[in-house]
């Protein structure tokens, strides 16, 4: 059996295409439940903050709930895949690094109003998702991250009065829809 260079190249292209498709599909299905869970947290957090600003302390509870939920999800996924390793520490590490970064950013930039604080978090999450999309072949994360950045910026400048409701509907809803889209990967 002999192969020409053209036939070998076709086979190599097929391999690369299938590997990329598998990686994207795997990544999408793994990330979907996290996106849906965080979408619900965003929607509740922003809606409550908009309707009853004195309850904004609720964010701390929601974020802690989200971190615990993420760790539980990672453990369930690891068990379902029969992986030997425990990936929970990666989530603690990722969220910890993100929290430290945001605390440092806030202390340096010192946002002036609640709208600015509310805009910075989704912008950071948006760039986080975009980078995951670029580096892990989970390409669907890239448009999702860019959409979060774009919609947050749009809402901040164009709809300042309704910004928190906008973030509840578009930010939270967008993440939930993004998660459902990821499940079809």
């Amino acid at each position: 059996m002999s192969l020409t260079p053209a036939e070998a190249q076709i086979a190599l292209n097929d391999i690369e295409k299938t590997e990329n498709r598998t990686a994207a599909s795997q990544h999408g299905r793994t990330s979907a439940p996290y996106l849906i869970m965080w979408g619900i947290i965003w929607a509740i957090g922003y809606a409550v903050t908009a309707a009853a600003p004195h309850l904004s302390w609720m964010w701390a509870t929601l974020i802690i709930g989200g971190i615990v939920g993420s760790v539980i999800l990672s453990m369930l996924q690891a068990r379902a895949m029969e992986r030997q390793g425990n990936y929970g520490w990666r989530y603690f590490g990722s969220f910890g690094a993100l929290a430290i970064f945001l605390a440092a950013l806030m202390s340096i930039v010192r946002p002036l109003d609640y709208g600015q604080v509310s805009a910075i978090f989704p912008l950071v999450v948006g760039i986080f998702y975009s980078l995951i999309g670029i580096w892990t072949k989970g390409w669907r994360m890239l448009p999702l991250g860019l959409a979060i950045i774009g919609l947050t910026t749009f809402g901040y400048f164009v709809l300042p009065e309704q910004f928190l409701y906008w973030m509840a509907a578009v930010g939270g809803g967008g993440l939930i829809l993004g998660g459902l889209w990821m499940r079809t990967a």
């Binding site: 059996m1 086979a11 097929d14 391999i15 299938t18 590997e19 990329n20 498709r21 598998t22 990686a23 795997q26 895949m81 029969e82 992986r83 030997q84």
Partner: peptide, 20 residues
């Protein structure tokens, strides 16, 4: 070296070692 088997092997190779 058979198109379907090549895709099966490529898909499985894209996963981390112990994943199914």
């Amino acid at each position: 070296h058979q198109p379907i088997r090549l895709k099966i092997m490529s898909a499985l190779k894209a996963l981390p070692e112990r994943d199914l």
